[in-house]
Amino acid sequence: MPTIRRTVQLALIALLLSNTVPVSAQHDKSEAQTMSVSDISSAHHNNSKLNDVMNRAVSMGFIKGDPDGNVRAADPITRQELAVVLAQALGLTLDKSVSASFTDVKSTSWSAPSIQAVKKAGILQGDATGRFRPQAQITGQELVTVLVRATALAKQEVQGDPLPSDWKGASTWAAPYIRTAEKDELLSEYQGENKVKQGLVRGEAIGMLLSAMFPETRLSVIQSIEGKQIQINGVIYQISEQVAGLLNNRNKAVLAQAGIQFKSRNHTLTEINGLEIRTGGQEGGPRKS
């Protein structure tokens, strides 16, 4: 009996020794696991933010998911996809009968009407060779340029001011647009990376667009009132009867460049939640869509 007990004890000791890992190795393994969990958590958080942005755009009607309902927030966004989003967001008129303006865009392409519309509006142009590069990814500095044009802001031409550190390495042609975006806080509600010369993903691009044109906390800017239309952050809205008593031609001089928080539906302004009268503003002309 003592012999059996001793044999069992030796077996247990051998088993324990065989599963023993050096303390340093245990620490390394634990640290590796911790880093992995942290990375996964960060990636999940980022994807969650991107999805939230995309879902807001879906609710506003200028983004649609695929047939399975996926918004593909982490997928790259191309120039032709951005053209379609901009045309929808700005409510630009699409003419399917117009021939393509670029050598690399077929008139029968699904994106051709939107590309023509944003070109006509002066928002998104081609290169010097007459190409639009529809399949190319849009970069951070390109999108800031587009958003300054879309919001109808006056470009800041001051050359001496250094660019913010997070726009380091931006091209010379993009610098005035970046300074304008910084001055007017166009990206104040954007939480992603700027990706100066890198391609953006869909969620990042839409996040920048929403911050510039449809901010939730920053006041938007009234740029013009003409009849029953009002231009805010570059977007033209119809003025509903509920707010026509305030937003009309009689008040357009005092309301020029005023700050406003509002609600809209299908490009019709239906409710005013906040208004800040600003003096010394210059009334901008409406952009025709």
Rank of each mutant, 00 (worst) to 15 (best):
G274V: 05
I40D: 13
G207S: 12
T7M: 12
E204Q: 15
A83P: 00
S224T: 15
N251E: 15
H267Q: 13
R265L: 08
A112F: 00
R218D: 14
I13K: 13
E216H: 06
L255W: 02
G192Q: 10
N70L: 13
S220G: 14
S111D: 09
V196C: 10
L247M: 14
S240E: 07
S30I: 14
G61Q: 03
G192A: 12
G227E: 10
A83G: 00
L210H: 01
Q282M: 14
N70G: 08
K228Y: 10
S41I: 04
S114I: 00
P22V: 03
S264V: 04
T78H: 03
A128M: 14
R5G: 02
S41L: 15
L269H: 11
L210P: 13
V146S: 06
G280P: 09
D161I: 12
L90P: 10
G281T: 10
L246D: 10
L186I: 13
G192S: 11
A100V: 02
K49F: 15
Q257T: 06
Q282R: 14
L186Y: 11
D39F: 08
A212F: 02
I236P: 02
Y190V: 14
D68V: 09
S30Y: 05
T20D: 09
D68W: 10
M208W: 08
T20N: 04
A32W: 03
K49C: 09
E189A: 06
S97Y: 13
N249A: 13
F262L: 10
L269Y: 04
E216G: 07
I260P: 11
V84C: 00
A152F: 08
F102N: 01
V146C: 01
R133E: 07
S41Q: 12
T34I: 14
T151V: 15
F132E: 07
A43W: 04
S171R: 11
Y177A: 12
P176R: 02
R202N: 10
S109M: 06
L147S: 01
K120H: 07
E142M: 04
V37G: 02
D66F: 02
A112E: 08
G122M: 05
T129Q: 15
I260G: 11
I230K: 00
A258P: 08
G169I: 09
A112V: 05
F262V: 13
A73F: 05
F214P: 03
T108N: 05
M213F: 06
P162G: 01
V21M: 04
A100I: 03
T7V: 09
Q223L: 14
L186A: 14
D127W: 01
M213Y: 06
Q116R: 07
P215F: 15
V118F: 00
D52F: 03
G192M: 11
Q125S: 12
P76F: 07
M60N: 13
P76Y: 06
G227M: 02
G259S: 09
S59K: 15
L210M: 05
Q141Y: 00
A87Q: 00
L269P: 08
K49R: 13
S165D: 12
D166P: 03
A181H: 10
N266H: 11
K197I: 03
K64P: 05
K120G: 00
L210Q: 11
V148G: 06
L86T: 05
H27L: 15
V221S: 06
R56Y: 11
L16A: 15
T270N: 07
W173H: 02
L247S: 08
K119E: 07
G169E: 03
V105F: 05
Q80S: 09
L16W: 08
P113L: 06
P286F: 02
V98W: 00
D68I: 04
L16N: 08
